[in-house]
């Protein structure tokens, strides 16, 4: 995406109804820890937003709240463009990719990707096409019959992504999905997620503690601060060049990393290292 196109996307985004609206949300855990303090965040369609911060800054907590997993202690969370079900949660619009692939070992790859559709009452026959489409999209079209144990870490993650995409959600939440992978696999999957985002127009909220990953992927970065978890900075990241292998060694990317890194250091300024 070039800079103009990016600007255009940002402009259209501003006009649409937000997908997620967090309004002064705080979260206190049952042990009394203030995990999140007064966080407000509006996410619009088409954004690739990274939640970046040191451990304990509440970024995963924020993501879980956005997913509707676990309520808020004060403030409010809303999904203005989703249908809200009887439990007060958005229906069918949100998918989640965890840090672990979180696959059912007793099911084949096909069975794992089938899960979200199966839970909605879709028959196996009707589900076959979207499942194979999702598997092909992550490059695992030939592995439908394999069991998770037969796959590498990166492939398991791809299954997890295919499972998240099979319902054609509007919002994809990813909680440090590639943190446990080796660098090469991680870069490959970063590119794959970017392609997926470009192709489908899905909105992504991506939790990471990696400056490089967030600078490579996102068009908006929210830097968070720890103890208590809160938003430190929220800024768009518009780049002139296409994000691909070449971009990784470009001056543009270096500057983006520098900027993000400076923000992160600032956020960690009053929280001494190792805490």
């Amino acid at each position: 995406m070039n800079a103009q196109a990016a600007d255009k996307t940002v402009a259209t985004m501003a006009q649409t109804r937000p997908l997620v609206a967090m309004d002064h949300v705080s979260k206190i855990f049952s042990n009394g820890t203030l995990a999140l303090q007064d966080m407000s965040l509006t996410v619009r369609g088409g954004e690739f937003l990274s939640l970046l911060g040191p451990s304990g800054c509440g970024k995963s907590t924020a993501l879980r709240i956005i997913a509707g997993l676990g309520g808020v202690s004060s403030g409010s969370i809303d999904w203005p463009s989703s249908r809200i079900n009887s439990k007060g949660l958005p229906e069918g619009d949100i998918s989640f990719v965890f840090q672990e692939p979180t696959l059912m070992p007793w099911q084949t790859v096909f069975g794992n990707v089938f899960l979200p559709l199966r839970l909605r009452g879709v028959s196996k026959k009707a589900a076959e096409e979207p499942i194979m489409e999702a598997l092909t999209a992550v490059g695992l079209g030939d592995f439908a019959k394999a069991y998770p144990r037969e796959l590498s870490g990166g492939m398991k993650m791809r299954v997890s992504i295919a499972r998240a995409m099979v319902t054609k959600p509007r919002l994809l939440l990813m909680d440090e999905p590639f943190a446990a992978l080796d660098e090469i696999t991680r870069q490959k999957l970063n590119d794959d997620v970017l392609n997926l985002w470009r192709r489908t127009g899905i909105t992504v909220i991506f939790v990471t503690h990696s400056v490089f990953e967030s600078a490579y992927l996102s068009n908006r970065i929210v830097v968070m601060k720890a103890r208590p978890g809160r938003v430190h900075a929220d800024f768009p990241l518009v780049t002139a060049s296409e994000r691909d292998a070449l971009y990784r060694s470009s001056e543009d990317y270096r500057q983006a990393c520098e900027k993000v890194s400076a923000m992160l250091l600032e956020a960690m300024g009053d929280a001494p290292e190792g805490h």
Partner: peptide, 14 residues
């Protein structure tokens, strides 16, 4: 049961 899988089932409204 794996807690992450339980979360996943919750998320999908199982």
């Amino acid at each position: 049961v794996d807690h992450n899988l339980l979360n996943l089932f919750d998320l999908y409204g199982a």
